[in-house]
């Protein structure tokens, strides 16, 4: 148990560090897509939701898991699509549409 916890805590610490390094380089122009895109990433909870919805441990856990799948999927699908839609609008001066 403790070994497992230490392992997970290590991952936590390193990914927080990585996150700060990566995201501080994002220019303010792209902060809205960054937010909706990272929002979609936080829909990764869908992974946990799938396991809860699919493993028939208790009736309630299946219901809760299925609801979680719905919410997390909205988060993932909506987040990535809307980010893509926004990023498609960013154009350079030349080669932009006339």
């Amino acid at each position: 148990m403790t070994a497992e916890f230490v392992f997970l805590a290590f991952i936590l610490m390193l990914s927080i560090f990585l996150g700060f390094e990566l995201i501080s380089k994002v220019p303010s122009t792209l902060h809205t897509p960054l937010m909706s895109g990272s929002n979609a990433i936080s829909g990764i909870t869908v992974v946990g939701a799938l396991i809860a919805a699919g493993s028939q441990n208790s009736e309630l856990s299946v219901i809760l898991g299925t609801a979680a799948v719905v919410f997390a999927t909205i988060n993932v699908v909506g987040g990535y699509l809307v980010t893509n839609r926004m990023l498609a609008m960013f154009k350079k001066k030349e080669g932009g549409k006339k």
Binding site: V47, A49, L50, I51, A53, G54, S55, Q56, V62, G65, T66, A67, A68, V69, V70, F71, A72, T73, I74, N75, V76, V77, G78, G79, L81, V82, R85
Partner: peptide, 30 residues
């Protein structure tokens, strides 16, 4: 990859949840 998890034995609720969530997500984003 998660769908290959052996704890998952019933895919009906998963499929329904994903379909419903995707429809709402696509519509909202559009």
């Amino acid at each position: 990859a998660t769908l290959f998890n052996q704890e998952i034995i019933d895919f009906r609720f998963i499929a329904g949840g994903i379909v419903l969530g995707s429809i709402i997500g696509v519509l909202a984003a559009r």
